[in-house]
């Protein structure tokens, strides 16, 4: 019963998000708008945490399973990856390290300034 109620709320937020995505001037994906709506609902007390907790766990506890079919689709992009091998290494690895350096140092500095 509570699980179904939670699913109704989560899918309701998703549906509202998908709908709003076509109307708001920002290019936010519908699922992200749905996440913001649920967050706003929980924070304002309009939605009770106990109502969505079990349904949320259903998705989040097995989140990695949900990526598997898309990841298999990489087999269609082997040619593209081979062509873009330089970008794969530079954008992937060098980009990662630079972003880590930037974010780590920035957050550390912000934190020192704040406290």
């Amino acid at each position: 019963m509570r699980l179904i109620k939670g699913l109704v709320i989560i899918f309701g937020c998703l549906l509202a998000g998908e709908f709003l995505a076509g109307y708001i001037p920002l290019t936010l994906p519908g699922n992200v708008i749905g996440m913001v709506l649920l967050f706003a609902g929980l924070s304002s007390g309009m939605i009770a945490l106990e109502d969505v907790d079990a349904a949320g766990e259903l998705f989040l506890d097995n989140l990695i399973l949900l990526f598997v079919p898309l990841s298999v689709g990489i087999m269609r992009y082997f040619d593209l990856l081979a062509e873009e091998i330089l970008s794969v290494v530079v954008v992937g690895l060098v980009g990662y390290l630079l972003l880590f350096l930037f974010s780590g140092k920035l957050v550390d500095l912000l934190n020192r300034g704040d406290s």
Binding site: C13, L14, E18, G30, N31, M35, V36, L38, L63
Partner: peptide
């Protein structure tokens, strides 16, 4: 993945 993203709010 759609509803899973929404659930990240929890």
């Amino acid at each position: 993945l759609g509803p899973a993203t929404v659930a990240l709010a929890i």
